[in-house]
Amino acid sequence: MGAVLRLWPVALLMLAAVALTLGVGVRDLSAGAIWRALTAWDPTDPAQVVLVEIRLPRLATGLVAGAALGLAGCVMQALTRNPLADPGLLGVNAGAAFAVVTGALIIGGSGAGLTAILAFPGAALAAAAVFLLGGGLRGEPGPVRLTLAGVAVSALLYSIVNALVLIRGDALEVFRFWVAGTLAQGLQKPLAEMGLVVLAGWLLTLWLAPLLELLALGRDLARGLGTNPLRVQGGALLAVTLLSGAGVAIAGPIAFLGLIVPPVTRRLAGGDLRRELMVAPFVGASILLLADGAGRLILAPAEVRVGVMTAILGGPVFVWIARSLRPGEAR
């Protein structure tokens, strides 16, 4: 009775996203130029330099961050049984950004290197706070309670981030990164390390998937089926922390991506969580890269930050999901 996993839409989406990221920008690159840069590297050709030093890092940043935030959204929705769950909406991204900005101000530095590690404790604390405020320990946290708790925590943390950034006028340019995410300046980010963290988070979520499906039947029935709800929730929160923290560390807080990805993966994987989580990184990366490409096209040569683009995309998705909630679910 297994669901059919449709891979070709994912492959098409991925192909379009990669082509857009590599080919389009202030200077449009042809397929031929891209091919030459890969086969016959010539550091004096400006087109090739653009590709290797700007476009490829941008692609890598988008792949890692999109995979991370897409997966985080799927896990959060499975964990909270809440179609409105998203690491941005539930305050996890805000926690990561808050920790990095605060750390950067105290330690000094740009916030893109060593201080990026602070994203993880920040994400973990915010995730735990929202989960507890939303009534997670006492039973079944309802979508509305959790979302409200997440919005409240997000608003609080972002207002502190904004205050800190505004007080330090000199830091405005650097810290703008931590208010709306971007895929630029990939070479300055710990891409490889965060890539490994995302991989670890992905494996953890794949392992947890069947347990999360049992938890979705309610805590009592899940326990009757031999699972330990607290351990599953703890494992899922750890995965969300790893994924959101890594995503925010390299691309800044990107809202709504975790909201857009799960409805897409559910349609592709037909309700089997492990299959959904197998395609989620590719769907997340594609959507993020496409949003980023669109952001570079619409006001060219100026660039609309990808965090703004996902919010523009995600707003209508949020309204659509919220409207399709059945009355019984809206607690």
Partner: peptide, 28 residues
Amino acid sequence: AQKLAILPQAPLAPPGIRVADLVRRGRA
């Protein structure tokens, strides 16, 4: 869980789940 099963009063059906997929979860 291999000896004793309990059906609580208000279990939660994931939205859109089919009967066969719901029953499969009992094999956990």
